[in-house]
Design a protein around this nucleic acid. Sequence first.
DNA 1: GATTTACGGAAAATCGTTTTACAGCGGTGG
DNA 2: CCACCGCTGTAAAACGATTTTCCGTAAATC
Lengths: 344, 344
Amino acid sequence: MTTKPASIRDVAERAGVSPATVSNVLGGRKPVNAALAERVREAARSLGYEADRAASLLRTGKARIIAVLVPDLDNPFFTSVVSAIETSLRDQGYEIIVASSNGSEATELSRLSAMLAWRPAGFVVLPCSDDFPARSRIEQAKIPYVIADRITRAPTADTVSVDNEDAGAIGARHLIENGHRNILVAASVLDLGNIRERCEGVAAVLAQQGLAASRIETGGDFETASARLSRWLDDNTPPTAILALTNFTTLGVLAALAERQIAIPQSISLIGFDDYAWMRARATPLTAISQPVQEIGEAIWARLKARIEGDTSPPAHIQLKCTLKVRASTASLSPTDSFSTGAV
Amino acid sequence: MTTKPASIRDVAERAGVSPATVSNVLGGRKPVNAALAERVREAARSLGYEADRAASLLRTGKARIIAVLVPDLDNPFFTSVVSAIETSLRDQGYEIIVASSNGSEATELSRLSAMLAWRPAGFVVLPCSDDFPARSRIEQAKIPYVIADRITRAPTADTVSVDNEDAGAIGARHLIENGHRNILVAASVLDLGNIRERCEGVAAVLAQQGLAASRIETGGDFETASARLSRWLDDNTPPTAILALTNFTTLGVLAALAERQIAIPQSISLIGFDDYAWMRARATPLTAISQPVQEIGEAIWARLKARIEGDTSPPAHIQLKCTLKVRASTASLSPTDSFSTGAV
DNA sequence: GATTTACGGAAAATCGTTTTACAGCGGTGG
DNA sequence: CCACCGCTGTAAAACGATTTTCCGTAAATC
């Protein structure tokens, strides 16, 4: 009944060779006579043999595992990055172990330590803060790792991120071109470097026109974002356009505007961040700054794979461009320069 | 410089005991003299010792790993279940390995086999089809597993799912109470048992009133859902209410109605499935059938944990109730019986 | 006080794979 | 004709923890 899974010995016996030969055939590290190899493969197939990862790991000291640590598994941006990595790895014999730091540096460190005990071949971290104090831990483990999303430049590690300044800039430019002068930037949390960079991108474009944007810090989650924006709208003269710098912030803005029955884009234009199906499934589809999630995943894996295979070139800092998806939530204010009208 | 991590021997040597004793102290399977134990613990601490999971796994044959296989890592329902499981496991010394079958039975089998090679302590599968042909593979591995979401009753395994009939019924009941008689059920794919059950729940409630619902199969993804619904609306007299049975279907319905400028709920009422922030961040917040994601994750882990610890009771089939979140997207049609009005 | 039991700890076997060191063998060049 | 080389494949060591077996001492029983 309970037959334990076939071991390399069973395969060897059935093929009439030694375990070492089986390993060589299946691992492909040493040449083996073609006929013999075929016999081995046939035996392995018929026994349903799969190498025990534990034993393999113990011997080689390197697990065919990629550890991925993200700040939040309920944020679709992070899960979509995980998904993109997963599809990149799929056929390469690696598994993904995943954990969430829940936005806390302490759990970030503890989860990272726990995952490190598996001696993964590589590590991907989307840090929950710019400091990323857990870095030293991973550094001393001498494991290839990639920092993504949050830290654009690290002295000792490869990084993959988005060109955040440009992301802010393309949003700002679109609004300027449509005649907006009174713009509110809805940032989530200014402690984060990527958010600050997005702000700076906006500010730089506006400065060229001698303008400055108002700015509000909405906090991380959707409810407080909505509440804070509501309060802000009570206290200030409303802008003609809002630029949200985060997917949750986008939701917060939408909720606040809906609550106050402010029409988009008739009263206020809106640019959202990230690009999800729900942004399109609306009476007024959202203009959005779209992060290239798939490419981010691929870039992470490309870099990690190179390091795993021994690349020792200096740390690379990959920056990918966001693109603006122009839809109906941004309207043109001044008819003069409106050869491109936002509302289609 | 590159000091390899401390092994159990190093700890043993420093504490002046045998490796076996170290194992007993740290693993706590055999009693050890208190003073000795403290010395061992102190040695372990000062060396920063963490047991090599590989060696441990090889010897015990059981990894402190939970494998989770879902149909799609880009669907927020599945990722939220993964997230719920992850938070349940966090402090129990387990890691999660996760993979997506991408809705294909073939990759489901291959990913499952690959993950099985790690000899995880437990397995969680959200099958991509009712057949779930990969089941035999996991069955013969003799590893505790839980099937979730798709298969409500399996002869040999624990299952965790939602009471899908009830989910459909509460939606239908709400519409009936609000005077709707001409209801369109937007199902994703009728091959799936859970979707069929939701349909049956709706049908049962309507049958009590001598009614029957129209039904449309929208397909899995948002774009085709939208297109098919558009076509359906061309060919049929529009219903007064639509009940979407899936989160992507909800998006498809919204897109189709938006495209045709059909007002919600003035022209058509809508009940969505699952409950996400974007459903609330609208001018007309969506009435929705909410699945208890957190509870699903907890139930999965509770069952799996029990099995891992040796529970041999007959397979349990846990069903959790969905709840209806009444918001503004469902309007009351007949003023007569409208003590509960949908629009608040 | 003698014998049995209990118990704490050490030595050694074990898990299944990879890798190193080496043996056998045929071919080639000196 | 011999020495050497390259090529295949095997035997055996190694990886690091857990677990079984075993031994010596202390406690318990009569």
